[in-house]
Computed example of a mutant assay.
Amino acid sequence: MIDQRRLLRDAFGTFMTGVTVVTTLDTQGNPLGFTANSFSSVSLEPPLLLVSIARSSRNYDAFHDARGFAVNVLSEGQKEVSNTFARPVPDRFATVSWRLGPHGFPVLEGVSAWFDCRMHQVIEAGDHAILLGHVEAFEAGSLPGLGYYRGGYFTPVRTADAIGTGPAVLVIAIIEKAGQVLLVDDGQGGLVLPSSRVGPEGASATLRTLIASTGIAAEPGLIYAVYEDVRRGLQHLAYLCPATCGQPVRGAGFVDLSPAGLADVSDPAMRSMLERLSEENRLGNHGIYSGNQDAGEVYRLTKGSRP
């Protein structure tokens, strides 16, 4: 039997960094769409992903009120498709081939992958709205994806060079087990969460490698925080990762999510994040943090759910 959950996980990991066209239907059944440079997986169980749309978009109301949407990950030969859906063109669908996906939203032909989603939740987020989609159907093909960086497109041949000169991204694993979280020695007498710079393999692969290095079996899970350390020029992506089994490697161990347990966390932003997690676990009301290392906003999801 085909493991759909594994296929979806692999699709998320492979296509998360590409240029996408997000599509839906208006109340008259007309197709609408816009170009987005990235999207994020939120959960594998249930299968959720998110995209955002600016309030200034002429399609904001249609997407905000839609019953669902599709995310189309463009292939390397679809630069013009990306440009078309990024411009104020009267009929963006006139020059592309498309069809309705299994759940009823526009899927473009020739893409690297598509995800057909029903709307799970809309989160108001300042001058944008975050659209949470529940993946009802998806397809991942073999065509290389299209990337975009610093005003220009790149394809997989240039991906490594583009990442190497781009902004630094740090992946953080919040590995939880029975009310405790895994911390590692920072080499200076303190403790920090396991973290690793993202390399050419991408954030999802880096996260899986990072988890494996701790000696703990854990499921790469939900995005819990996205923040920038402006002093160090680092973008941080923190994921909640439920542990299942295993023994921590030397220099790592589980501590309680309590003031005493977190007292030796040397990174203030990490300590603040774990204090929030402790409180949210107690209340059962979680959210996604967005901002910098000092201040930001927590966008709440449905009470009782995990972000």
Rank of each mutant, 00 (worst) to 15 (best):
H64R: 15
P46E: 08
G164F: 03
N59K: 13
Q121Y: 06
V249A: 11
T302N: 07
G101R: 00
L183W: 05
Q180R: 10
T165Y: 09
S142C: 06
P242R: 06
A203P: 02
F39R: 04
E201H: 11
Q188I: 11
L240N: 08
A212Q: 12
I130Y: 09
L44F: 13
R271N: 11
T155M: 08
L49W: 02
H128I: 06
T23C: 05
R6C: 03
G126Y: 09
V51E: 03
R150H: 12
S75D: 08
G166I: 04
A238W: 05
I216V: 11
Y149I: 12
S213M: 03
I172S: 11
S56N: 10
P47S: 07
V89Y: 08
F105N: 04
D267R: 10
G202S: 04
F15L: 13
K177D: 10
L25D: 11
P47R: 01
E297T: 15
S213L: 01
S142K: 01
S41L: 00
R250S: 15
P106S: 07
L234K: 04
K79T: 13
P242G: 05
S57E: 07
R197C: 09
R300V: 02
A217Q: 13
I288Q: 06
P156F: 01
R99L: 14
I288C: 07
R87L: 14
N72L: 00
H120C: 09
H134N: 14
N59P: 08
E80F: 08
D91Q: 13
Q247W: 02
S82R: 07
I172L: 12
G221Q: 00
A217N: 15
Q247P: 10
S112A: 03
V51I: 15
F138G: 02
V89I: 06
M119K: 12
R300W: 14
P200E: 12
L222K: 13
V135E: 09
F115A: 03
I175L: 13
V42S: 02
L277D: 07
L262H: 08
N72V: 00
G13E: 04
E45Q: 12
R306K: 13
D294I: 11
S213W: 01
A218E: 04
S82M: 11
S40M: 14
V226Q: 14
G104Y: 07
R55M: 09
P106N: 02
V96Q: 01
S56W: 06
A70S: 12
P167Q: 15
E280F: 00
S97W: 00
E201F: 01
L143A: 05
R231F: 15
F63E: 07
T165N: 12
M16L: 14
V111T: 02
E297C: 13
G77Q: 13
F115T: 03
R208Q: 13
D267C: 12
A162S: 13
S272Q: 14
F115S: 00
R92M: 06
E136T: 08
S41D: 01
R306H: 09
K177T: 10
F39D: 04
V96E: 05
I175T: 09
R58Q: 09
C245N: 10
E109D: 15
T35G: 08
M270S: 12
D61E: 14
D161R: 12
I174F: 05
L240D: 00
A178H: 09
H64M: 12
G145D: 07
S112R: 01
S56A: 15
